[in-house]
Protein backbone atom coordinates (compact mmCIF):
# COMPACT_ATOMS: atom_id res chain seq x y z
CA UNK A 1 0.00 0.00 0.00
CA UNK A 2 1.15 3.52 -0.71
CA UNK A 3 1.50 5.23 2.64
CA UNK A 4 2.37 8.68 1.38
CA UNK A 5 0.90 10.10 -1.80
CA UNK A 6 1.84 13.56 -2.96
CA UNK A 7 0.09 14.95 -6.01
CA UNK A 8 0.83 18.15 -7.97
CA UNK A 9 2.00 19.91 -4.85
CA UNK A 10 2.90 23.58 -5.22
CA UNK A 11 3.82 26.11 -2.59
CA UNK A 12 5.13 29.64 -2.36
CA UNK A 13 5.55 32.09 0.50
CA UNK A 14 5.52 34.95 -2.00
CA UNK A 15 3.36 34.64 -5.14
CA UNK A 16 6.18 35.56 -7.50
CA UNK A 17 8.74 33.19 -6.06
CA UNK A 18 7.60 29.57 -6.22
CA UNK A 19 9.34 27.41 -3.62
CA UNK A 20 7.92 24.08 -4.76
CA UNK A 21 6.14 23.39 -8.02
CA UNK A 22 4.26 20.31 -9.19
CA UNK A 23 5.78 17.82 -6.80
CA UNK A 24 4.31 14.33 -7.17
CA UNK A 25 5.55 11.09 -5.65
CA UNK A 26 4.27 8.08 -3.74
CA UNK A 27 6.06 6.03 -1.11
CA UNK A 28 5.38 2.50 0.07
CA UNK A 29 4.92 1.63 3.72
CA UNK A 30 8.15 0.56 5.41
CA UNK A 31 10.48 2.26 2.97
CA UNK A 32 13.39 4.53 3.78
CA UNK A 33 13.49 7.54 1.50
CA UNK A 34 16.03 10.30 1.43
CA UNK A 35 15.35 13.71 -0.06
CA UNK A 36 18.50 15.56 -1.10
CA UNK A 37 19.03 18.97 -2.60
CA UNK A 38 20.86 22.25 -2.22
CA UNK A 39 19.97 24.96 0.24
CA UNK A 40 16.93 26.70 -1.19
CA UNK A 41 15.81 23.66 -3.18
CA UNK A 42 12.62 23.56 -1.11
CA UNK A 43 13.52 20.53 1.04
CA UNK A 44 12.54 21.97 4.40
CA UNK A 45 9.37 23.48 3.00
CA UNK A 46 8.41 20.05 1.73
CA UNK A 47 8.97 18.62 5.22
CA UNK A 48 6.74 21.28 6.77
CA UNK A 49 4.03 20.59 4.19
CA UNK A 50 4.19 16.85 4.89
CA UNK A 51 3.98 17.49 8.63
CA UNK A 52 0.97 19.71 8.11
CA UNK A 53 2.73 22.79 9.48
CA UNK A 54 2.12 24.60 6.19
CA UNK A 55 -0.82 24.29 3.82
CA UNK A 56 -0.10 23.85 0.10
CA UNK A 57 -1.26 26.45 -2.45
CA UNK A 58 -2.12 23.69 -4.86
CA UNK A 59 -2.17 19.90 -4.88
CA UNK A 60 -2.74 17.31 -2.23
CA UNK A 61 -0.96 15.16 0.34
CA UNK A 62 -2.50 11.87 1.40
CA UNK A 63 -1.23 9.87 4.37
CA UNK A 64 -2.59 6.34 4.50
CA UNK A 65 -5.41 7.38 2.17
CA UNK A 66 -6.50 10.41 4.22
CA UNK A 67 -5.95 13.83 2.68
CA UNK A 68 -4.23 16.39 4.89
CA UNK A 69 -6.32 19.51 5.35
CA UNK A 70 -7.57 21.83 8.05
CA UNK A 71 -10.26 19.36 9.15
CA UNK A 72 -8.11 16.25 9.32
CA UNK A 73 -4.80 17.67 10.52
CA UNK A 74 -5.53 17.43 14.26
CA UNK A 75 -6.31 13.74 14.07
CA UNK A 76 -3.44 13.09 11.65
CA UNK A 77 -0.74 14.71 13.81
CA UNK A 78 0.00 11.53 15.70
CA UNK A 79 0.58 9.68 12.41
CA UNK A 80 3.34 12.00 11.27
CA UNK A 81 6.29 12.39 13.57
CA UNK A 82 8.85 15.03 12.65
CA UNK A 83 12.30 15.67 14.06
CA UNK A 84 13.81 19.05 13.26
CA UNK A 85 17.33 20.31 12.74
CA UNK A 86 18.11 22.24 15.91
CA UNK A 87 18.38 19.93 18.95
CA UNK A 88 17.75 22.77 21.42
CA UNK A 89 14.72 24.29 19.77
CA UNK A 90 12.60 21.15 19.96
CA UNK A 91 13.36 20.12 23.51
CA UNK A 92 10.21 21.29 25.27
CA UNK A 93 10.30 19.53 28.64
CA UNK A 94 12.79 20.36 31.36
CA UNK A 95 14.04 16.78 31.58
CA UNK A 96 14.23 13.86 29.15
CA UNK A 97 11.25 12.28 30.89
CA UNK A 98 9.13 15.43 30.62
CA UNK A 99 10.05 15.94 27.00
CA UNK A 100 8.95 12.48 25.94
CA UNK A 101 5.76 13.01 27.97
CA UNK A 102 4.93 16.26 26.16
CA UNK A 103 3.50 14.60 23.05
CA UNK A 104 1.68 11.99 25.14
CA UNK A 105 0.01 14.73 27.18
CA UNK A 106 -1.18 16.39 23.97
CA UNK A 107 -2.63 13.12 22.72
CA UNK A 108 -4.55 12.57 25.96
CA UNK A 109 -2.67 9.45 27.07
CA UNK A 110 -3.75 8.74 30.69
CA UNK A 111 -1.13 9.75 33.29
CA UNK A 112 -0.86 6.23 34.73
CA UNK A 113 0.22 4.76 31.39
CA UNK A 114 2.87 7.36 30.61
CA UNK A 115 5.76 5.97 32.67
CA UNK A 116 5.69 2.65 30.88
CA UNK A 117 5.59 4.29 27.43
CA UNK A 118 8.38 6.70 28.36
CA UNK A 119 10.60 3.87 29.60
CA UNK A 120 9.97 1.80 26.48
CA UNK A 121 10.84 4.52 24.00
CA UNK A 122 13.75 5.88 26.01
CA UNK A 123 15.19 2.37 25.81
CA UNK A 124 14.58 2.34 22.03
CA UNK A 125 16.98 5.22 21.64
CA UNK A 126 19.32 4.04 24.47
CA UNK A 127 18.53 7.03 26.68
CA UNK A 128 17.02 5.04 29.57
CA UNK A 129 19.84 6.08 31.92
CA UNK A 130 19.32 9.77 31.26
CA UNK A 131 15.60 10.11 32.06
CA UNK A 132 16.03 12.78 34.72
CA UNK A 133 18.76 14.75 32.97
CA UNK A 134 18.22 18.31 31.85
CA UNK A 135 18.82 19.26 28.21
CA UNK A 136 21.84 21.41 29.12
CA UNK A 137 23.70 18.31 30.33
CA UNK A 138 23.09 16.32 27.13
CA UNK A 139 25.06 16.30 23.88
CA UNK A 140 23.46 17.29 20.59
CA UNK A 141 23.24 13.66 19.51
CA UNK A 142 21.56 12.68 22.78
CA UNK A 143 19.05 15.52 22.45
CA UNK A 144 18.17 14.38 18.93
CA UNK A 145 17.72 10.82 20.20
CA UNK A 146 15.33 12.15 22.84
CA UNK A 147 13.47 14.06 20.12
CA UNK A 148 13.16 10.81 18.16
CA UNK A 149 11.90 8.97 21.27
CA UNK A 150 9.36 11.74 21.88
CA UNK A 151 8.08 11.33 18.35
CA UNK A 152 8.09 7.51 18.39
CA UNK A 153 6.14 7.48 21.66
CA UNK A 154 3.16 8.79 19.69
CA UNK A 155 3.48 5.71 17.46
CA UNK A 156 3.52 7.53 14.14
CA UNK A 157 3.26 5.71 10.84
CA UNK A 158 5.90 7.98 9.33
CA UNK A 159 9.07 9.42 10.78
CA UNK A 160 10.07 12.65 9.05
CA UNK A 161 13.58 13.92 9.64
CA UNK A 162 14.28 17.49 8.61
CA UNK A 163 18.10 17.68 8.54
CA UNK A 164 18.05 16.02 11.94
CA UNK A 165 21.79 15.34 11.91
CA UNK A 166 23.11 18.50 10.29
CA UNK A 167 23.89 20.36 13.52
CA UNK A 168 25.59 17.42 15.20
CA UNK A 169 29.27 16.61 15.59
CA UNK A 170 30.56 13.53 13.74
CA UNK A 171 29.98 11.29 16.77
CA UNK A 172 26.40 12.49 17.24
CA UNK A 173 25.75 12.18 13.53
CA UNK A 174 26.96 8.59 13.57
CA UNK A 175 24.82 7.72 16.64
CA UNK A 176 21.66 9.21 15.19
CA UNK A 177 22.36 7.81 11.72
CA UNK A 178 22.76 4.31 13.13
CA UNK A 179 19.60 4.69 15.20
CA UNK A 180 17.57 5.70 12.15
CA UNK A 181 19.01 2.81 10.18
CA UNK A 182 18.09 0.39 12.99
CA UNK A 183 14.55 1.79 13.28
CA UNK A 184 14.04 1.11 9.61
CA UNK A 185 15.60 -2.36 9.68
CA UNK A 186 14.15 -3.66 12.94
CA UNK A 187 10.86 -1.81 13.35
CA UNK A 188 9.97 -1.48 9.66
CA UNK A 189 9.24 2.18 10.24
CA UNK A 190 8.55 4.33 7.19
CA UNK A 191 11.24 6.99 7.18
CA UNK A 192 11.51 10.12 5.09
CA UNK A 193 14.76 11.91 5.71
CA UNK A 194 15.63 15.31 4.34
CA UNK A 195 19.32 15.97 4.27
CA UNK A 196 22.21 17.52 2.48
CA UNK A 197 24.50 14.80 3.75
CA UNK A 198 24.73 12.76 0.59
CA UNK A 199 26.34 9.83 2.46
CA UNK A 200 23.00 9.16 4.17
CA UNK A 201 21.57 7.96 0.87
CA UNK A 202 23.65 4.78 1.16
CA UNK A 203 21.09 3.09 3.42
CA UNK A 204 18.01 4.44 1.65
CA UNK A 205 15.62 2.51 -0.57
CA UNK A 206 14.64 5.55 -2.60
CA UNK A 207 16.26 8.87 -3.25
CA UNK A 208 14.39 11.99 -4.29
CA UNK A 209 16.59 14.73 -5.67
CA UNK A 210 15.08 18.20 -5.45
CA UNK A 211 16.43 21.00 -7.56
CA UNK A 212 14.98 24.51 -7.72
CA UNK A 213 11.66 23.44 -6.26
CA UNK A 214 11.13 20.54 -8.63
CA UNK A 215 11.79 16.82 -8.50
CA UNK A 216 14.97 16.28 -10.50
CA UNK A 217 15.22 12.54 -9.94
CA UNK A 218 13.22 9.92 -8.05
CA UNK A 219 14.94 6.58 -8.15
CA UNK A 220 16.40 3.67 -6.25
CA UNK A 221 19.74 4.63 -4.73
CA UNK A 222 21.56 1.99 -6.84
CA UNK A 223 20.11 3.30 -10.07
CA UNK A 224 20.58 6.95 -9.29
CA UNK A 225 24.31 6.72 -8.67
CA UNK A 226 25.10 4.59 -11.72
CA UNK A 227 25.70 7.75 -13.62
CA UNK A 228 27.63 10.13 -11.34
CA UNK A 229 27.65 12.96 -13.89
CA UNK A 230 23.88 13.21 -13.74
CA UNK A 231 24.03 14.58 -10.18
CA UNK A 232 27.28 16.42 -10.66
CA UNK A 233 25.54 18.47 -13.37
CA UNK A 234 23.39 20.13 -10.72
CA UNK A 235 26.31 20.47 -8.34
CA UNK A 236 25.60 17.54 -6.03
CA UNK A 237 28.17 14.97 -5.01
CA UNK A 238 27.50 11.25 -4.82
CA UNK A 239 28.49 8.99 -1.93
CA UNK A 240 32.14 7.98 -1.98
CA UNK A 241 31.29 4.30 -2.24
CA UNK A 242 29.25 4.86 -5.42
CA UNK A 243 31.94 7.07 -6.87
CA UNK A 244 34.33 4.16 -6.35
CA UNK A 245 31.86 1.71 -7.87
CA UNK A 246 31.43 3.91 -10.93
CA UNK A 247 35.21 4.05 -11.39
CA UNK A 248 35.57 0.25 -11.15
CA UNK A 249 32.64 -0.14 -13.54
CA UNK A 250 34.64 1.65 -16.20
CA UNK A 251 37.13 -1.24 -16.04
CA UNK A 252 34.38 -3.79 -16.19
CA UNK A 253 34.43 -4.61 -12.49
CA UNK A 254 30.92 -4.45 -11.05
CA UNK A 255 30.87 -4.24 -7.27
CA UNK A 256 27.75 -4.57 -5.19
CA UNK A 257 28.67 -3.48 -1.65
CA UNK A 258 27.15 -0.49 0.09
CA UNK A 259 29.93 -0.03 2.61
CA UNK A 260 33.69 0.21 2.61
CA UNK A 261 34.32 -3.05 4.51
CA UNK A 262 32.12 -5.01 2.13
CA UNK A 263 33.85 -3.49 -0.83
CA UNK A 264 37.30 -4.37 0.52
CA UNK A 265 36.05 -7.94 0.95
CA UNK A 266 34.76 -8.06 -2.62
CA UNK A 267 37.96 -6.62 -4.00
CA UNK A 268 40.34 -9.09 -2.40
CA UNK A 269 38.13 -12.00 -3.41
CA UNK A 270 38.23 -10.65 -6.92
CA UNK A 271 42.01 -10.84 -6.76
CA UNK A 272 41.85 -14.47 -5.66
CA UNK A 273 39.74 -15.49 -8.63
CA UNK A 274 42.22 -14.09 -11.13
Amino acid sequence: MKLIEVKDLSFSYDENIPVLSDISFALEEGTYTVIVGHNGSGKSTLAKLLAGLLAPNKGEIKIGGTALNADTIESMRAHIGIVFQNPDNQFIGSTVRDDIAFGLENHLVPSVKMDEIINTYAAYVSMQDYLDKEPSSLSGGQKQRVAIAGVLAMQPSILLLDEATSMLDPKGRKEVGELIHALHQKKQLTILSITHDIEETRFADNVIVLNKGKIYRFAKAEKLFENPDDLKNIGLDIPYIYELRAKYAKYGIHLRSRDIEGMAEELWQLNLKK
Binding site: K48, E74, N86, N106, G150, M154
Partner: peptide, 26 residues
Protein backbone atom coordinates in the same frame (compact mmCIF):
# COMPACT_ATOMS: atom_id res chain seq x y z
CA UNK B 1 13.97 32.10 15.02
CA UNK B 2 14.04 29.92 18.12
CA UNK B 3 10.46 30.79 19.00
CA UNK B 4 9.36 29.87 15.48
CA UNK B 5 11.18 26.54 15.61
CA UNK B 6 9.75 25.78 19.02
CA UNK B 7 6.21 26.64 17.93
CA UNK B 8 6.61 24.28 14.96
CA UNK B 9 7.96 21.49 17.17
CA UNK B 10 5.12 21.92 19.66
CA UNK B 11 2.48 22.01 16.96
CA UNK B 12 3.92 18.96 15.22
CA UNK B 13 3.69 17.06 18.49
CA UNK B 14 0.02 17.83 18.76
CA UNK B 15 0.00 20.82 21.08
CA UNK B 16 -3.05 23.02 20.61
CA UNK B 17 -3.32 25.95 23.03
CA UNK B 18 -6.52 25.83 25.05
CA UNK B 19 -7.20 22.19 24.24
CA UNK B 20 -7.56 19.54 26.86
CA UNK B 21 -4.35 17.70 27.79
CA UNK B 22 -3.55 14.96 30.24
CA UNK B 23 -0.73 15.56 32.69
CA UNK B 24 2.29 13.34 33.25
CA UNK B 25 2.87 14.67 36.75
CA UNK B 26 -0.17 14.60 39.00
Amino acid sequence: QRADDLANAMEARGYIPGHERTRYKV
